[in-house]
């Protein structure tokens, strides 16, 4: 399998766990995996990306522009920021919930994400997910990182079986959060499988 997956969001949203789960699930399936994270100053409320590259002939640690098969986006503006990475026929799964920049309260720009989602729909195949209602049963949008993996599996876009990801959730998530994470993953699968992709 050759697959490039970009994960993007804002520091603190749990993008790193999502990338680790994909990488370890694919490795367990015998695939060669490379990944790269943005680390350092950018983490503090800044834009973050994880690049996961599955397959033998991925040389660059970061995905080249126009090569990502799939973008998993945790925030509307962040996916637009990273849209150049998407392949012509690539797919985007994105949370509709905007994260206002930490400086927004100082200089109000009125950012609410809607302009980004409209733009996104005009550019590519995408599935917009209301992370708030999806995660409501679990009490925190922090479960979105696992729910979006479920959506990708449900849409058949991750190239991995649900079981492969679920096994890694059991291994990598602290015991007391495993049940909620599995439930979030399954809820995501349903949304991804409901064929709402435009």
């Amino acid at each position: 399998m050759n697959k490039d997956i970009l994960i993007c969001g804002v520091g603190g949203q749990g993008t790193v766990l999502a990338s680790k789960l994909i990488a370890s699930a694919a490795t367990a399936c015998g695939e060669t995996v490379h990944s790269a994270e943005t680390i350092g100053m950018a983490q503090r409320g800044g834009s973050v990306t994880s690049h996961v590259r599955i397959g033998e002939d991925a040389f660059s640690p970061l995905i080249p522009s126009g090569s990502a098969d799939l973008i998993l986006a945790f925030e509307p503006a962040e996916v637009v920021r990273n849209l150049r990475y998407l392949k012509t026929d690539g797919l985007v799964l994105v949370s509709s919930v905007p994260v206002k920049p930490t400086t927004e309260s100082l200089n109000d720009t009125g950012y609410d994400g809607t302009e980004m989602l409209t733009y996104l729909q005009s550019k590519c195949r995408c599935l917009i997910i209301d992370a708030r209602s999806l995660c409501a049963p679990f009490g925190s949008t922090r479960y979105f990182n696992v729910a979006i993996l479920g959506a990708a599996v449900g849409a058949g876009a991750l190239g991995l079986a649900a079981e492969a990801v679920l096994q890694e959730i059991q291994k990598k998530v602290p015991a007391k959060f495993v049940d909620n994470n599995i439930a979030a993953f399954r809820a995501g699968m349903q949304i991804g499988g409901a064929n709402g992709i435009k």
Binding site: V10, M41, A42, R44, G45, G46, S47, P64, S65, G66, S67, A77, V80, R81, L83, R84, Y85, L86, K87, T88, K100, P101, T102, T103, E104, T109, Y111, E115, M116, Y119, K123, C124
Partner: peptide, 22 residues
């Protein structure tokens, strides 16, 4: 040239997220 991805010349202005003290 390598595939450059979608044409994004009409991209809306993105919010800036400069690093700040926590």
């Amino acid at each position: 040239p390598a595939d450059a991805g979608p044409d994004l010349s009409d991209m809306p202005a993105l919010p800036q997220r400069p690093p700040v003290l926590c």
